[in-house]
Design a binder for these strands. Sequence first.
DNA 1: ATGCTATCGATAGAAAACTATCGAAAGTAA
DNA 2: TTACTTTCGATAGTTTTCTATCGATAGCAT
Lengths: 213, 213
Amino acid sequence: MKPVSILTLRRLSQYLQLILDAQKEMQEYISATTLANATGVHMTQVRKDLASTGVVGVPKRGHKVDELALAISEFLNWNDSTEAFLVGAGNLGSALLGYRDIFETKGMKILAAFDNDPDLIGTKIHDVPVFAMEKFSNLAQRLHVHIGIVTVPPEAAQPVVDMMLDSGILAIWNFAPVQLATPEDIIVEDVDWYASLAVLSQRLAVKLMKKTE
Amino acid sequence: MKPVSILTLRRLSQYLQLILDAQKEMQEYISATTLANATGVHMTQVRKDLASTGVVGVPKRGHKVDELALAISEFLNWNDSTEAFLVGAGNLGSALLGYRDIFETKGMKILAAFDNDPDLIGTKIHDVPVFAMEKFSNLAQRLHVHIGIVTVPPEAAQPVVDMMLDSGILAIWNFAPVQLATPEDIIVEDVDWYASLAVLSQRLAVKLMKKTE
DNA sequence: ATGCTATCGATAGAAAACTATCGAAAGTAA
DNA sequence: TTACTTTCGATAGTTTTCTATCGATAGCAT
């Protein structure tokens, strides 16, 4: 199994979303062409992406919806459950905890949240208990938690991450807008709103410029 | 000025973050090498990215921090203010509104939020007034708002976007996990958490697999 | 001065990502 | 049956993105 590019992984997630929709509508087959039209990705690209999961389709029909959904889920490891802890139970952290059920269908189970606000500690947010930061290390090691979700303010992020790594965390899902310093073998996935905004603003600026020309 | 890739735009935003940090620490110069080491991007790549903004550096020193910050900001159009409306004032919407000050430094001014929850209408969230959905169209047209931020549940997203486009919105910042159908000339920037999670899970799975081998 | 180092910017080369084309298979229609 | 269409999967080719190399320049140390 050869390693697959980040872009392919992102697209697979996109396809899966559409495939699950098709599944809800009781469709039996779905073709690469359909996925291509819906996403704007070239159809040969869709075929290559799907091929990397090992699925095979049938000519003239496409892929069996159920099989395809399963194959992509398996490939993304969304059928095994991986435990996660979230640090930073503010606005953004709470918003994320609101998605806990969906995350669970995607293989990530958020077991607990951590914060240092005394008003939050001991409460539950969207059914997830909030603990004091000091409890993180002990609990993470005992429960073999592998994923740390970072939703703290930027200045707090690096210390939190250092603490996470000391506690055996292997992968970081980082929502704080900072460049984290981590060892090479640690997986860091950034959700960078500013980068996203950068693309939006620049594209919009170019578009408006063309208009006035 | 030739068009620049999405990846370059995202990286520029990343560099800018580091450059602003350097600015706070009163550094006068910053080199492509420094940015490369901090971000993990190859240094020649950093040079190319910076070159697309038109900046020139000086050998042995690098780039003037102030000039570079300005050049990137200009390039991303973060010095002109663009007005935005946000639809969906739930958890995620509120979290986003909490960032309004920072977004404003990045050229996006969130003027108002919209929702159809009667309990929210008329209130302010992080100083941003919340209006009824029906008011969107009229206000957007009167105030020449160009950006629509979508933080509604997935099933509500498409109708909201259709309404936005009817109201003259040109660019959509979409936080809902659905594939939006829009005309070609509309700019859509998706913040796709599931895609991000897909990358994280798959990478982690591969890593753990290698370990047990 | 002279040599050394860090950096820049340009060019060329390598790698990755994407697109086009083609034969084969499965269904559909005449 | 035979022709036609849709789709698949594979291969080849193109484009884009990334990386390596090189000469030139500014500062620093001797």
